[in-house]
């Protein structure tokens, strides 16, 4: 699980071109949207693509997405739970 969280941080930084951030700058429970890392709705679309492409997990329900993308920990837990 810990490795997955670190991997996710690296992938998110690269995918979203967050040049100012290093993986260690993102806390596992830090909110990714709004006041935390500061991601927005287009980033959410990119994260949906990332999860489906890299981990084979789909987010079907937008309400579910809101909870899943809350933090690195919630994304990692969602992947662990749904990965085949």
């Amino acid at each position: 699980m810990r490795n997955l969280q670190e991997k996710l941080k690296g992938e998110i930084i690269e995918l979203l071109n967050l040049e100012d951030l290093q993986p260690e700058d993102i806390g596992n429970d830090e909110p990714l949207f709004g006041s935390g890392v500061g991601l927005d709705s287009i980033d959410a679309l990119e994260l949906i693509v990332l999860l489906e492409r890299e981990y084979g997990v789909k987010i079907e329900n937008p309400e579910e997405g809101r909870e899943v993308f809350n933090s690195i920990n919630t994304i990692a837990a969602f992947i662990e739970k749904n990965r085949k």
């Binding site: 287009i42 679309l45 990119e46 693509v49 492409r53």
Partner: peptide, 13 residues
Amino acid sequence: DNEEGILSPTAFI
């Protein structure tokens, strides 16, 4: 690369 599958929205926009 993705065989017309899942595509990044940012590059399209």
